[in-house]
Simulated assay, not measured.
Amino acid sequence: MSEAKVTRPIVSMVAGETSGDMLAARLLSGLRPQLPQSLMHGIGGPRMMEHGFVSDFPMEKLSVRGLFEVLLHYREISGIRKKLMQQLLVERPEVFIGVDAPDFNLDLEIQLKQAGIPTMHYISPSIWAWRGGRIKKIAEAVSHMLLIFPFEEEIYRQAGIPATYVGHPLAQVIPLEPDVAAAREELGLEPDARVLTVMPGSRMSELKYNTEAFIQTAKLLLKRDPHLQILVPMAGAKQRAYYIELVLRAELEDVPVLLMDGKSHTAIAAADAVLVASGTASLEVALFKKPMVIAYKMMAASWHVLKHMGYQPWVGLPNIMAEEFVVPEFLQHAASPEAMADALWKQLTDDSLRTRLQTRFTDMHHSLLRDTAQLAADAVMRVIDNK
Rank of each mutant, 00 (worst) to 15 (best):
V195E: 08
H227E: 14
K223F: 02
Y243L: 14
S143W: 11
N210V: 01
A182H: 08
L221T: 07
A182S: 12
L170N: 11
T217W: 05
P150E: 04
H168S: 03
L221I: 11
D192W: 06
Q239P: 05
P200K: 09
G188F: 01
H168V: 09
M204W: 02
M234R: 01
L220S: 10
Q216G: 00
I244D: 15
Y165T: 14
L248K: 06
L222T: 08
R249A: 15
Y156N: 08
I155F: 12
E212K: 01
Y242M: 01
R240W: 11
A141Y: 03
R157V: 11
P233Q: 07
L222Y: 00
F151N: 01
I148N: 08
V198T: 04
K219W: 02
G236A: 07
F214C: 02
L222G: 07
H144S: 07
L222F: 10
S205M: 04
E185Y: 06
E186Y: 06
G236H: 07
E185T: 15
H168R: 12
R249L: 02
V247R: 09
K219I: 10
H227M: 13
A235R: 00
D179L: 01
E186A: 11
V198N: 04
K223C: 04
H144Y: 08
P233K: 06
R224P: 12
V198F: 08
L189W: 05
R249T: 08
G201V: 06
L207T: 00
T217S: 07
I230F: 07
L221A: 02
Y243W: 09
A250F: 00
K208R: 10
T164D: 07
E153H: 09
R224H: 13
Q239H: 01
L196P: 10
L228D: 02
Y156L: 10
I161R: 14
A218N: 02
L220K: 12
R224T: 15
G201M: 11
A241Y: 06
S202V: 12
L187G: 06
L176N: 12
R240Q: 15
S143Q: 09
I148Y: 01
S202R: 09
K208F: 00
L231R: 03
P150F: 08
V232P: 01
L187S: 00
L176A: 11
Y242E: 15
G201N: 04
A171C: 05
R249I: 03
Q172W: 05
